[in-house]
Write a protein that binds this DNA or RNA. Structure first.
Lengths: 345, 345
DNA sequence: TTGAAAGCGCTACCAC
DNA sequence: GTGGTAGCGCTTTCAA
C-alpha cells in the first residue's frame, strides 16, 4: 500500500465503489447508515485524510490565502499576520506569506508566485516603492480577489482595511498645539504612498485649523527612513526658529529623531515634543516614553482575513467595502502635559 | 475558454498534442525548435501558467514548506520567518505559516493542518507547553521531513538549528561574575523546555566554576512569563542577602525585572546588574539599555529553510545534522563595567 | 442506495 | 519528433 491511504484503498477493503466511499465520508444523505459507519470506522483506523490537492484540482479552490507584507519582521506587520493566521485557521484557510522588502520588484514577484500557487485570494499591504498596481489588477482579472490593508491605494476597486490616518494625524497635531506647541515640524516619507500623504495632510490641516501657517522648512521628506531622519532632525535644529514639536510619520522615525535630540542635549518634551505613529512595542520603553498613535494591527489582520473569506464564500455578486478601524492617541512622556497650557494662560 | 489557459488550449490552437506542448514548455530535448518556439510564444501570449495543483497531484510534491512558531508577533520568530521566507522563495518554495500560541493543542492542530495541506516539509519551534512530540513523529512516518529550530527537543532524530544556549548563558553569567557580582539570581521559565534547561544549566555551571554555590533562593521558575517575573523580582529583593545581579532567561523577563527594580528605586547596574537573552529590539532602547545575548534569528530561519530544502531535494539517504549558530554577548548599560572590577581589586 | 465513468490539468510511458 | 493514453485522488453526474 501507499504511504497514505486513499479513497480507493477504503473502497477495495470494503468492497464498495470510490463514489460511495466519497459520499460516506462527506456525510451525503443517501448513503446507508451502516455503510457510512463502516467507511468512517475504516478511515479512522487507516488514518485516512483526503488529499487536498486532488480536492483542489477538482473544485478549483485551495483554501489558501496569500499575504504580502513589506517586511515580516516589522512588529506592525507580524502582528497583522498573527491576526490573519488566527482568523484564517479558524475558518479552514491557511496563509502563504511573502514579503516585498519595500521593493516593487519583489512585490510583483511575490504576488505572481502566490498566484501561481493558486491562492484563493490575496491580502496585501503595498511596498513603499509601489506606484502602479497592474500586478494586482491582473490577479483580479484572473478572479483572484484582492484585499488591501494599511498601505492601501486609491485607484483599485477592492475591499480595504485601514485606519483613518488623516484624522489620527490631525488629532495628534491638534494635541501638540493644545499643549502649547506652535512650531510643529513634520518628518515623514515620500508623499506618493497614500497613507504618508494622508498623515501629512492631517498634520497640515490641523495646523491651519489652529491658524498656524505651516512653514516649508518644517516639513521634511525622507527617502531612506533608516538614516535620513537623523540629518532631518539636525536640519530642523539649525533653523533660525527651531520647532517646539516634531510630528513623526512613524515610531522608528520618532526614535531616530529622539536620538539626535538627546545627543544635542535638547530636552524632550520641555524644549521639543515628539510624537510618533503606530505604537510599536519599543515606544513604551524608550526614554522618555513616546506619545504615539496606536493602530489595531492584530485587528486589521483579522478584519482583512474576514473580508477576503467572506468575499470568497459569497455566492452572490460582491461590492467592495472599506473597513476603517479606529486609532487612539497614546499620551506618554515625549510630549508636554496638557495642564501646562492651562497654567500658562 | 476558461479564465486561465491550460495546456490543452495551447495544444488545440497549435494542432499539437498535450504531450508535445508539455514537453515544449519544459524544454524537453526532443521537441523540434520550431514547435518549441511556437508553443512558448503562444503560452506567453495567453499568459499561460502551469497549474501547480495538477503538477503537485502528479508529482507528489507541492514546493511548500509548513512553519509553526509559538507566536508570529514575537520579534525573534518573525525574524526567523523572514529568513525562511527569503531563502524559500529564492529556491522556489513558499511557506505556510501557523502559530501555536504556546499551546500544545494549537501546535498539534497546526501541524496536522499543514500536513493535510500537503506541505513537503515542516519547520517548527516547539511551544512552551509541548512535552510529547508524537505529532511530529507521525509526520516523519508519513515521510514529511521535520526540522526543529531554536526550541528543539532531544528525543527526535531530525535536523536541528540551535544556538548553544548553555554556552551563551555560561558566558553571560561568567561576565557578571567578572564585573564583581557574587550573588547572581536566575529568573526563567520551566525547566522542561529544553532550551530553558540549557540556559539554566549554563548559569549554574558558570557560578560553580567561579566557586559560587548557587543558592536555591536565587532561582525562580515562572510559569506565566507575562506576570510572574514581577513577583519573582520582589521575592528576590526580600531576600536577607539580596542578589547583586539577575540573569534573565529572555529579554521580556528582563524588562519586567527592570521595571520592578526601578519602582523599588534599586539602581541598575550599581545595586543590581541585569542581563537578558535574545537581543530583542527593545533591549537597545530601554533605560538603561540591556546587556543581553544576541541570537542570529534571521540566520536561524534561513538555515532551517536551507536544511529542509536540502533534505527534500537530496536523492540519497539522509542523516540529520545539527547546525549550531553562534551568539554574542552584547554589553550595554544594565551591567557593571568590567574595569570596575579591576579598579576594586 | 450504490456503481461506473468522466474529468479537474498535468506528466510520462510507450508507440509510431 | 510527436501523439495516444493512463493515472495522480477526488467528486459528481447519470444510470441502475
Amino acid at each position: 500500500m501507499r504511504i497514505l491511504p486513499t479513497i480507493e484503498d477504503i473502497a477495495e477493503a470494503l468492497h464498495l465503489s470510490k463514489a460511495t466511499v466519497s459520499r460516506a465520508l462527506r456525510d451525503h444523505p443517501d448513503v446507508s447508515p451502516e455503510t457510512k459507519r463502516a467507511v468512517v470506522a475504516l478511515a479512522k483506523k487507516l488514518n485516512y485524510e483526503p488529499n487536498r490537492l486532488a480536492q483542489s484540482l477538482r473544485s478549483h479552490k485551495t483554501n489558501t490565502i496569500g499575504v504580502v507584507v513589506p517586511e515580516i519582521a516589522m512588529h506592525f506587520f507580524s502582528s497583522t499576520l498573527s491576526g490573519m493566521q488566527e482568523y484564517a485557521l479558524r475558518h479552514d484557510y491557511i496563509i502563504m506569506v511573502c514579503q516585498s522588502m519595500e521593493s516593487y520588484q519583489h512585490e510583483k514577484i511575490s504576488v505572481h508566485k502566490l498566484a501561481s500557487n493558486r491562492v484563493d485570494g490575496l491580502l496585501i499591504s503595498l511596498s513603499s516603492e509601489t506606484r502602479k498596481v497592474d500586478h494586482l489588477r491582473q490577479l483580479i482579472e484572473k478572479k483572484i480577489p484582492v484585499v488591501l490593508f494599511d498601505r492601501v491605494c486609491d485607484d483599485l476597486d477592492v475591499s480595504k482595511v485601514t485606519v483613518n490616518d488623516y484624522e489620527a494625524a490631525f488629532k495628534a497635531v491638534e494635541y501638540l498645539v493644545k499643549t502649547g506647541c506652535k512650531r510643529v515640524a513634520y518628518v515623514g516619507g515620500p508623499r506618493d504612498l497614500y497613507i504618508n500623504a494622508q498623515r501629512e495632510q492631517g498634520y497640515l490641516d490641523a495646523l491651519r485649523r489652529s491658524n498656524i501657517a505651516p512653514s516649508e522648512d518644517w516639513i521634511i521628506h525622507c527617502k531612506d527612513l533608516h538614516t535620513e531622519p537623523l540629518t532631518a532632525t539636525r536640519q530642523l535644529l539649525d533653523l533660525p526658529h527651531t520647532p517646539d514639536a516634531i510630528f513623526c510619520m512613524n515610531d522608528p522615525i520618532a526614535i531616530l529623531v529622539m536620538q539626535v535630540l538627546k545627543e544635542q542635549c535638547v530636552r524632550i518634551p520641555d524644549d521639543i515634543s515628539v510624537i510618533g505613529f503606530t505604537n510599536e512595542p519599543v515606544s513604551n520603553f524608550i526614554e522618555p516614553s513616546l506619545t504615539t498613535v496606536s493602530q489595531p494591527s492584530y485587528e486589521m489582520g483579522k478584519t482583512a482575513a474576514q473580508l477576503i473569506i467572506e468575499q470568497l464564500e459569497r455566492t452572490a455578486s460582491f461590492t467592495p467595502v472599506t473597513r476603517e478601524l479606529s486609532t487612539e492617541l497614546i499620551i506618554r512622556n515625549s510630549t508636554r502635559k496638557l495642564y501646562r497650557k492651562v497654567l500658562e494662560t
